[in-house]
Each structure stands twice: as structure tokens, then as C-alpha cells.
Simulated assay, not measured.
Amino acid sequence: MDLAIDNLAVDRILHDVTLTVGAGEVHGIVGPNGSGKSTTLRCVYRALKPSQGVVLLDGAPLDRIPVKESAKTLAALTQDSHVEFDFTVAEVVAMGRLPHQTGFDRESPRDREICAEALSRMDAGHLAERSFLSLSGGERQRVLIARALAQQPRVLVLDEPTNHLDISHQLAVLRLVRSLETTVLTVLHDLNLAAAHCDRLHVLHEGRVHTSGTPREVLTADVLREVFQVEAHVVPHPTSGVPQLLFEHSEVGS
């Protein structure tokens, strides 16, 4: 399923943001703090109504699709995801099945199977009976990703999915994302992780798309100097060949 953002604006935050994620592709949004990354994602997962523009799923305007129907297609991991009550991990992940159930449905054996598989893929099956509130930040993050996977979405929107995770689980989560054959739009702060795991990157700067392209096209010394205010040496990864960045702080803007 294609995901398109067309001429999106949010007052004083976003300006004419346009990008397209092809079916099954993984695209990353990168940029400095305050550039509009999370605001863009909030418009995509319908937490924020843009003042201009439209989000399209396979060409259909998202705001014309009933919320429950779109939840069968699009799942999101948000920065402000939280669980206020003392649910077990299994109960939290089961919430991902709600869009596929009617008001009178109970959790089916198939629902439980899907949830167990999602937890297993997040290396969190052993946490199923734990209280969600008792978990560490990294454990909570993995459970919330499992909840999104339990929705079985065709489009997955991830705002900092590697937040709170140790490096092993960061790499595991991003490898999983690549293996899903799902259309993915994600915000990542770590540019080296973004380069290694995204098909294309969109650099936001001051609420606008500064540049889009493959990691090799986007992560250049000039772009990093102008947008991120850093000097960077761009070198190929010794195994994959994707660009990797070695940073030194720039005097630009100081």
C-alpha cells in the first residue's frame, strides 16, 4: 500500500511537506530537533489535523476513511504512547486486535496467536504476564511495537522506534521492520541507523522537506553542515557499503 503526504502544512510548524512512500518501502524522516518530524507523523496517524494538504493511502484521502477502518490498515508507535492502568503485557498487546473486532467480540484463539507471535518477534514473549508498568523503558518500547504489529497493518508509522533500546535490540527492531514487507514511515535520530535500514530518507529543516533521496544521495557533508550544523566525514560501511558518518562539531552558526 502506498502512503503519500501531499502539500501538508500545520500552522507555524510544517510548510508544504510532500513525500511518497512506495508499497513495501521503508522511508525515514530525519532532521534536527524542532524541524517538524513528529508533527508530520501525527498528521499521518490522525492525532493532528493539518491546516492544509492531505494524507493518502493508495490514493484515497485518509480523512475520508472511518477511523476504525483506517486502524485495520495503519498502525503507529508514537512518542507519547503510554498505558495508565496496570495491564499485563499480554493485555496491552491484545489492544492491537481491537480494530479487527466488533463491540461484542471476545479475543479469539487466532487473536491470541497473533499477539503471541508479535511478542516473540520483539523478544518479549517472556514478559507476557508481567505488569506493563513494572517494565523498563526498553521493555515497554518493545511491547508497544508488538502491539502495533498485532494490528497486522499494511502501513506502519514509527516515531523513534529505537528509543530506550540497547544497541542489540535497536538493530533487531530495525531488521524486523525491513523484513515485514510493510510500508513504513519512521522518524530516526541516529543517522547511521537510518542510512543502514531505510530505502529513502527525507530531511526536514525548519518545517520543510530540505532534500529527499537514497541515504547516499541525502547524507552528504554539505547537507549535514547546512541542516545539522555539524562537519561529517562520510565513509562506506566495510560490509554493506552504505554511508556511515563520523562527526565533528562545526563552527557554523556559533
Rank of each mutant, 00 (worst) to 15 (best):
L3P: 04
A4K: 14
I5P: 03
L8C: 00
V10G: 00
V10W: 09
I13D: 05
H15N: 15
T20V: 13
A23S: 14
V26M: 12
H27F: 11
G28N: 01
I29N: 04
V30Y: 03
V30W: 10
G36D: 06
K37M: 10
T40W: 14
R42I: 02
V44N: 12
Y45C: 12
R46M: 08
R46V: 02
L48R: 15
K49T: 14
P50F: 11
Q52M: 08
Q52Y: 08
G53Y: 02
L57T: 12
L57R: 15
G59F: 09
A60V: 15
P61W: 09
L62H: 03
R64T: 15
I65C: 01
I65K: 02
V67L: 11
K68A: 09
E69S: 08
S70F: 05
A71W: 13
A71I: 07
A71Y: 14
A71V: 09
K72V: 02
L74K: 10
A76M: 14
Q79A: 10
H82D: 09
H82P: 00
F87K: 10
V92N: 07
M95S: 08
G96Q: 05
L98C: 11
P99F: 09
H100T: 03
H100N: 05
Q101C: 06
G103F: 06
F104T: 12
F104N: 06
D105F: 08
E113L: 12
A118Y: 12
L119I: 07
L119Y: 00
S120Q: 14
R121L: 08
M122F: 07
A124T: 02
G125S: 06
R130F: 07
S131N: 08
F132W: 09
G138W: 05
G138P: 06
E139Q: 00
E139W: 01
Q141I: 13
R142D: 01
V143S: 08
V143R: 11
L144F: 05
I145Y: 02
I145K: 01
A146L: 11
A146R: 04
A146G: 04
A146Y: 12
R147P: 00
R147G: 01
R147M: 08
Q151T: 02
Q151Y: 03
Q152A: 15
L156T: 00
D159N: 01
P161H: 05
P161W: 07
T162W: 13
L165V: 11
L165C: 07
L171C: 04
L174T: 00
L176N: 02
L176C: 01
T182Q: 01
V184D: 01
L185F: 09
L188C: 02
L191Q: 03
L193Q: 06
L193M: 04
L193E: 02
A194N: 03
C198I: 03
D199E: 08
D199Q: 09
R200I: 05
V203S: 05
V203M: 10
H205I: 04
G207F: 13
H210T: 07
T211P: 02
T211K: 14
S212F: 11
S212E: 10
G213E: 02
G213W: 12
T214N: 15
R216W: 12
R216T: 14
E217R: 15
L219D: 01
L219R: 03
V223C: 11
V223D: 02
L224T: 11
R225E: 12
E231S: 14
E231V: 05
A232P: 04
V235P: 00
P236T: 09
H237C: 13
S240V: 08
L245K: 00
F247A: 06
E248R: 15
V252C: 00
